[in-house]
Amino acid sequence: MLKVNKLNAYYGESHILKDVSVAVDQGQVVLMMGPNGHGKSTLLKSICGLVEKVGGEISYSGEDIIGSAADKIVNLGITYIAENRELFPYMTVKENLKLGAYSKNARANEKKNMEWVASLFPKLIERQKQLACTMSGGEAKMLAIARGLMSDADLLCIDEPALGLQPSYRLDVLEIIKEISKQGKTVFLVEQNIPQLTEMADKIYIMEEGSISFEGSKDDALNNEDLKEIFLGL
């Protein structure tokens, strides 16, 4: 479904991603781990057209998408859910959700997705008239995920959904990711605060200093003594 081949990405003069190759198949949950500041988010952003200077190959369902504008990529069915949420602060929950369905494809399924989101996030719908800037960190994070789901994307690139959240919210995040996956959606996730996620991942990557240092199944990862200690926290 998604193939990234020898991707290089830069912020100004700094070379962030160095020949990164990853593959995500339809319906999988793929987990990207590794130390902070080593390029995990940059990889997700590059896939979603949010990094200006990129080189290499990114193909999605056979279509070459590297360097495409972000709005074209959203239209193809890929969405980015940001670690720092990137909500519209002076708009209500409902308006944020509606803007999540801005792209052409999402528009057609807006009603259906709104019902789905309402069933996943009943608390958000109770507060649909509240301004995004008045929400707590955890609630805002849920809204960011919900807005991402409104895009009707088949591939969700989710960046550290549980970072900075209380344990109860982390379990909510886990449940939501299970539910998204159950709907047949593909999830490419940067996250290392939820050990249970490692259990459900179809594939695990580890990125260090802008390169992939490990690629394998969860069993490979769990059998690797170094990884266990350093990253998986088990």
């Binding site: 949010l50 959203v74 990137e86 909500l87 519209f88």
Partner: peptide, 12 residues
């Protein structure tokens, strides 16, 4: 309100 957020949801 948020140019980065607008880009994420696919606003041209």
């Amino acid at each position: 309100q948020n140019p980065a957020g607008a880009k994420i949801v696919g606003i041209p």
